[in-house]
Design a protein around this nucleic acid. Structure first.
Length: 280
DNA sequence: AGTGTATCCTGCAGGC
DNA sequence: TGCCTGCAGGATACAC
């Protein structure tokens, strides 16, 4: 679930609540979520003050003072939940996540909880320059106006990989996952198995428009909840009912009524309308 | 350079 | 009710 719109939603919420708060205590429940020993992680973050929150691709960037970053990738089922300080009468048990992985107790009495059922997520600390090196490995942001249709086509031009695989590759373009790749290709009328290099100028224009449309509409709806995704305040995203292809195998295409088809390649399901998205 | 496969892990839906 | 299989938003590593 957590693709660009879901991550953006979480980031926007956290950006209104975390800055200025200090980490009072760190509890690591599942150390397989980290890339370093838990004691180093705890000691490195205790006393750190949140400065800002931002996003890069599908990564949540928590910026601290003194300068360092905590970069959170939600994997498949990760949640980053903010709990404001309690007042009398609250029942914390009702809102406690079922699969906490790391708990940050905040100076003001609130807490930030990373929860993750499958634990494919990752919490990594970086020095600022270390992160810059990682950042440089990611492709451009699809919503960045600096990315032009001509840029996209130039990047596509050199690759013979299927366009769906190309879109999922974070080093080529950052933030797109299986749901939004599926939806954008449907909107653009491009078959998921078409070679990236075979995409025409007109098609890459349509594709970029479709990518931006589906991502920004989903951000408006606070993302897509299939099962586990929640915003930082625990809400479900509302974009699921707007999906036109993803998960709709056998259902009629909303444009032409042809049954939506499911195919599998690259170890992932792809959904398409065989009529609106003619084969490679 | 690409692709197919496997891995990490848990939970749920569907078939029997 | 229970057991089994397949499948899931992601990232990465491997052999070919």
């Amino acid at each position: 679930m957590p693709e660009l719109p879901e991550v953006e939603t979480v980031v926007r919420e956290l950006a209104t609540s975390l800055p200025g708060l200090e980490i009072a205590k760190v509890s690591v429940i599942h150390d397989d979520l980290l890339r370093e020993p838990p004691h180093g992680f705890r000691n490195g973050l205790k006393g750190a003050r949140f400065e800002s929150v931002s996003r890069r691709g599908k990564n949540i960037l928590l910026h601290f003072f003194p300068p360092q970053l905590l970069v959170v990738n939600l994997g498949m089922t990760g949640q980053l939940l903010f709990f404001a300080p309690h007042r009398g009468g609250d029942k914390p048990d009702d809102e406690s996540p079922t699969h906490p992985g790391v708990v940050f107790e905040l100076g003001a009495g609130g807490k930030l909880v990373y929860a993750d059922i499958r634990r494919f997520g990752l919490l990594r600390r970086y020095k600022v320059d270390e992160w810059e090196a990682e950042d440089a490995r990611l492709g451009p942001e699809p919503l960045d106006p600096a990315l032009t249709p001509a840029d996209l086509q130039m990047r596509l031009g050199s690759s013979r990989s299927p366009i769906r695989s190309w879109l999922l590759d974070q080093t080529r373009i950052a933030g797109i996952g299986n749901i939004y790749a599926t939806e954008a290709l449907f909107r653009a009328g491009v078959h998921p198995k078409r070679a990236a290099s075979s995409i025409s100028t007109e098609e890459s224009d349509r594709l970029l428009t479709a990518i931006r449309g589906v991502l920004s509409e989903s951000i408006q709806a606070q993302g897509t909840t299939l099962r586990d995704y929640r915003t930082a305040s625990g809400e479900e995203g509302g974009f699921r009912s707007s999906l036109q292809a993803y998960g709709r195998e056998g259902d009629p295409c909303r444009r032409c009524k042809t049954p939506i088809q499911r195919i599998v390649f690259g170890n992932r399901s792809a959904f398409l309308c065989p009529s609106c998205q003619p084969g490679p």
